[in-house]
Design a binder for these strands. Sequence first.
DNA 1: GATATTTGACCATC
DNA 2: GATGGTCAAATATC
Length: 319
Amino acid sequence: MDWEQNMLLNELTQGRELTNLLRKHLHPFSSPETRQVLVEKILSSYEKALSVLNWSGFMVETQPKVSIVGSPASIAYSSHGSYASDEKHSFKKRKTCSGWNEKIRVSSGTSLEDGYCWRKYGQKDILGSNFPRGYYRCTHRYSQGCLAAKQVQRSDEDPTIFEVKYRGRHTCNQATHFEKGDDSGQKQQLEEKQKQSKETVLKVKTEDLDKRDYIFPSFSFPTDSGEVENGLFFKSLMENDIAFVSPATSESNYFSVPPFQMGSFCLGQNVQSSESDLTEIISAPTSVTNSPIVDLGISSLEKLEFDPSFTFDNPEFFS
DNA sequence: GATATTTGACCATC
DNA sequence: GATGGTCAAATATC
């Protein structure tokens, strides 16, 4: 039995057991929180199972098109393409139509972080391109069966721009962290700010590689004197595997973030931002240890991420 | 020693 | 045969 089958079996078995558990908690004396946790776990199991099927060549919707109570708002999302098993002894299949969902242009002057820990597994010179393409997959691929992957390549036209292509969806606990790290108070606060609406309009631009009808809604985000306070916003990007973008091309359809975000987003880990080679910066999130981001409070994370006064020049940061 | 990165080789597809 | 995606051994880093 190969890795995919094992994973599928595990997730489905877990889903069944969790469902049984949920059934036992359906009586009125059971706490709603417990039921909610069980529901989320069940959904997570199914999502992983569907991801495996997706990557095995089945076309399966990995994301429900309706959001459940208490879950973050989700947009319609479907993965495409086939996947070659990573099992040691299986064939290395080349992907046709690549299955890469989204292509995003990221300025080198901004964060290339997307909140996840990536591990580089390859680099390739691409015909007709001046710069090599880096291949990354989620650090938790084997530990948690997370199948998310991305490609990073510097643009020929504008070397300050990186093109990031994403595939698959995070099912690791990094993803659940972003979902759960956003408490209702924070959400309420954000909604309040949105209502106040003295915001700068910030948009994320995505391009669809395969001309599919993947639509990422542009959105406005409230800022307070330029400071981004965006647990929800950030989570939304995480949910959809969207990276940050481009002050260098700072037109209205790009979301600007300060350059300090160039460092590693996986906190508690080394920040390796190479000045000489921007490709190295791209890989910064991968050059980290495996300390799970779930152990960190999102509030401190945000503080670091979005403190506009922060610079890497600050020696205290490295001490 | 554990973990991450690099890089040449392998394989599927065109 | 060319090309792109992935593997895996060697190497680097902590």
